[in-house]
Design a protein around this nucleic acid. Structure first.
Lengths: 237, 237
DNA sequence: GCCGATTTGTTCGTTTCCGTACGAATTTCG
DNA sequence: CGAAATTCGTACGGAAACGAACAAATCGGC
């Protein structure tokens, strides 16, 4: 994690912040700090405190539910369309999930209490946060059903496409070990699925990096959940 | 679905409403109608309108995500601890899920716009709704991971216990066909799991009715997710 | 360019669950 | 009471994924 100084740009690269009026946005930015995260840097531990909320400007942040035996599954991925620490606004004292950096990213960091106060003021920020809440609930619900009903290969493709959309990149760092943790399956199952998709020419990967070759066909390989989620997050105001 | 007249009792049998001040509660009750639902009655269709919200007084309401091929999986069960139609407050024009009656119940029905206006006033109702939102997000996230990581038998036991807590009954109507729809698995898989639990003396079932015989042991048969969710909603033992 | 660490490929037997099908038991209703 | 409908038991082959282990490929640092 690294801190940087910043000038008060008109746009913030975060969708929620960008929908604010320039006045509101600048007031918030004045209280924020630019913070960057590297691969696997932890923002919150499960059951740990949430002193800050974060507005990603790029990259992807993952939230995973961890079971008692250490196994885990991702419940949400957040990019520049959202904010990390939403549940604090709804009264959570500790993070219910482990939250960490999946694709290296830059964020705006804001003290949690400041965030809560700002949202409570109402206005457009509150409307945005409420709309985002609705989208997150839909996302998690769709994942829940998806995890019951769809194969590893379909979920693998869905996951890649979602990461691409959020990061805005066709290539990003990703090990199969890591992804098996996200999907809640064996690493060998990921190898199998990855091999199929690579043979079909949809992706290319190699020692910790993966690249999407044919996004259109990859969408066909993914389950319907991907489209549903993508549409959910294309909310205008 | 049936409508009944009602007198303005001081308590409503719904946990959210009961936490309100008597004044607030009575103001809401004055605008509500008592509505009862029978098995499989539909409150909202997926993509359909949400003209009313409902505060259950007993029984259980299920929300399921339905896929294009008709298969489905439950993402939430709601009893007297919550409210149906929460997402309307967060700006949803249509229900993202199919919502229907799982265990026959009586509810208080309130016009959606009235509900939204009341919550927007702030005060204790808003605090309760926000806290409930947090709990629901946790519930759905836990289900999402659970669906990846736990067996049908574990999830079966979890489901029974959650239904019992919400309905406040040890016995309720339930067909295996119905449950297979909830769990997103084959009916034959449910038969297998049910047979195991019955042989072990934890439950007894017969032609559409199921009874919990040994709740304590059933908790051991369930995955850890059950306890986590129960604590989240602070159900009494 | 070599070495250790990381990442990926592959194998084995096993378990869980699937899709399908059909018969038996139970309940409902005319 | 008898017929129809619902619900449950079970069986089959097959697919998907598991847990574990080991070998091969690739990369980064020296």
């Amino acid at each position: 994690m690294s801190l940087q100084s910043h000038s008060f740009d008109s746009l913030s690269e975060n969708r929620l912040l960008n929908f604010l009026t320039p006045n509101d946005r600048n007031r918030l930015l004045a209280r924020m700090t630019a913070v960057s995260f590297g691969l696997k840097d932890v923002l919150y531990n499960a059951g740990g405190p949430m002193p800050y909320v974060y507005f990603p400007r790029n990259g992807v942040i993952s939230s995973v539910t961890v079971m008692a035996d250490g196994r885990a599954a991702e419940v949400a991925a957040t990019g520049r369309e959202g904010v990390i620490g939403l549940t604090a606004y709804y009264g959570a004292g500790q993070s219910p999930e482990k939250v960490f950096c999946q694709i290296p990213c830059d964020t705006w960091r804001l003290g949690t209490e400041l965030f809560v106060d700002e949202v409570r003021r109402g206005g457009r920020l509150q409307a945005l946060v409420h709309g985002y809440t609705r989208s997150v609930m839909r996302l998690v619900a769709q994942h829940a059903a998806c995890n019951c009903l769809h194969t590893v290969e379909e979920r693998f493709a869905k996951w890649l496409l979602m990461s691409r959309d959020r990061a805005g990149e066709e290539e990003f760092p990703l090990t199969q070990e890591f992804l098996s943790y996200m999907l809640g399956v064996r690493r060998a199952s990921v190898t199998l699925a990855a091999g199929m998709l690579q043979k079909a020419g949809l992706i290319h990967y190699r020692h910790g990096k993966i690249r999407i070759i044919n996004g259109k066909k990859l969408e066909s390989a993914a389950c319907e959940c991907y489209q549903i989620i993508r549409e959910e997050f294309e909310y205008p105001l």
